Computed example of a mutant assay.
Amino acid sequence: MSCVGYLGPAGTFTHAAALELAAAAELVPMPQQSAALAALAAGEVDGVVLPIDNSVNGVVLPTLDALLATPGATIVGDVTVAVTFVALRRPGGVPAEVVVSHPHALAQCADYVRDLGLPVRTSSSTAEACRDLAPHEIALAAPICADLYDLEVLATAVEDHSGAGTQFVHVTSEDSAAGAGEVTLLAVLPERNEPGGLIRVLEPLHDLGVNLVNLVTRPVPASGGRYLFLLWADGLAPEQFVDYRARLAESGVRCSHLGGISGHVRHGGDAGSGVVPRRLGAGS
């Protein structure tokens, strides 16, 4: 039986994703993304399941940074899990003084937290918030945590936007060619940060007729100002990737294939124009 790590403890949304992506495997909880990918690199597990994107709060930077730090780690599958939160407390607990959860959960339930008028405490996961919940605290977590940790449900569906989803990826040490998908995730590193650098990275994709569905910039630590780009390229065929990487190499730009996903995470429910930030709304 294969062994697959996930961000634990039991009851996290990552646990739910692992049950879908690696149902036949032995599932092992991991404390954070860097530890999970270190275990993969050391051969201690056959794969890991990690969150990569959320339809409300965007990409999960610790996952992306851990992927960048782990040679050979390749995304070979993904699943999007519907995200809804409940407010939980210890049975017979004292009056609440603090709300505790993962930072992404607190952000997705900001209206509910504001209405409570209580300070917050962050945890490494929604499930950890429940496992370590103090009598004077309220946890925001997945509904499954109520039974797992014998907690009382105070309120359901406390998220600001219904229909939210988090995309989780299955990462292994397979060759990057095995990570083909509808959307290819690429890491691109120019030699220096200079005017026109991003255009040189994107122009070859334009020439190939490849659309981007996302772009994230990450600083290169202790580099004195260098940046790399993470690109979500829609419909990039293997031969196009070879062509793209060759064109980048001509100008001294390095490129790595991090794997493929079935598509870019989308918000559930009725499609619409979404909640446009006020600074970018009509008349601003």
Rank of each mutant, 00 (worst) to 15 (best):
V45P: 01
V171W: 07
R89M: 08
A142H: 01
L185N: 00
D175H: 14
P91S: 08
E159H: 09
A187M: 08
H102G: 14
V100K: 06
L280G: 01
G196A: 09
V4C: 06
A282G: 12
H257L: 13
L19V: 13
S125C: 13
A18P: 11
G92N: 03
V81G: 08
R192Y: 05
T122I: 11
G268E: 12
D78A: 14
G260S: 02
P219C: 05
N54K: 01
H102V: 13
S251P: 00
A164M: 13
V120R: 03
R218A: 12
A96F: 06
E97N: 07
T80F: 00
L19C: 14
L68K: 03
M1C: 02
A134K: 10
G117L: 04
G260D: 03
R266Q: 15
H136V: 08
L19W: 00
R121H: 09
L133H: 07
L88T: 03
P119V: 04
N57S: 15
Y149H: 09
V265E: 09
C255R: 03
V276A: 01
D270M: 14
H15K: 00
V213K: 02
T14N: 08
D207R: 14
P29V: 11
E97S: 15
R89S: 13
E152G: 10
A177V: 11
G43P: 02
L189E: 14
G263N: 07
G260K: 01
P219V: 04
V213Q: 14
A41Q: 13
R90N: 04
S101Q: 02
L154C: 10
V28K: 10
D132W: 02
V120P: 02
P221D: 13
T217I: 14
E128C: 11
R131G: 09
A10F: 05
A142L: 02
L133Q: 08
V45K: 00
A17S: 07
Y244V: 12
S125F: 12
L228I: 01
R114M: 13
L205M: 05
A237D: 14
P221W: 12
H102E: 15
D234T: 09
E194T: 14
